[in-house]
Amino acid sequence: MADQTPAVGPSPGRIALRRMLAHRSFALGVSVLLVMTLMAIFAPLIAPHDPYATDLTQRLLPPFWHDDSVPEHILGTDKVGRDYLSRLIYGARVSLAIGVLAVLLSGLIGTVLGVAAGYFGGKVDAVVTYLIGTRLSLPLFLVALAVVAMFGSSLTIVILVLGLFLWDQFAVVMRSVTKQIRSQDYVRAARAAGASHMRILWREILPNVREPLLVVATVEMANAIILEASLSFLGFGVQAPLPSWGLMLSDAREFMFFDPWLLTIPGCALFALLLAINLTGDGLRDVTGRGGVLR
């Protein structure tokens, strides 16, 4: 199953790049992701208004496709008269920050545990298996709710909670991938030649787990973003008035039967971001032929 790309002809990187560009849904996913990232980074330059500026006399203005919309607020305003477009643009920051930071943290934890278990086996493996089992048996959402209720909700807490909880798939995949690599001839050869464990891990194992790591990372990033949105939706995520898509959706519920655009606009943004991440992940899986079936 562990098919090494043979290093003949053009460099493997080139081949991969060419295959990636040829993969249409991957290209689409990456482009959308890129646009969202640029939007997040340059939010202060793009956003037409201050996302925190309220105007109680200009509440709930409809977006441009309604007759009574106002050109000043293309996507209308929210329940306290803040510009919806500006909040949407700034919201990309929150979602991406949560996705990236939570995944960095969980990826680190999961990779260390998974690689250690797969490489050393034996007791280390048993302990990691036990940790993974324990983590999986804790109902994630309920625990996250309880932790946030306990420590108060803020961006930092949400990132920490998600980061400390979403490492299980990293560990599972890294463990099995490392196991496969460890039994490869070149690893055995390196060990026979007297290379230290650290050196083998660093030189032989890590470079070869990169691709499945990336695939898991995309899945978990999407996961983290959905979880933040769900937590915020229930009022246990980030705190208002921070512009978060989950929080915008939560606020929009009060008006969803009559001003459904309040719900559809951030909903579509969230959908587009998650779709882009998933397409990217699927593309990576196809292109690299690695990662297998992942949750």
């Binding site: 999407a222 949105a229 769900s230 959706l249 909903g267 959908f271 779709l275 998933n278 699927d282």
Partner: peptide
């Protein structure tokens, strides 16, 4: 499958 994973349950 991809669409399914991209739509938040509550939405």
């Amino acid at each position: 499958a991809v669409l399914g994973q991209a739509i938040p349950t509550f939405w």
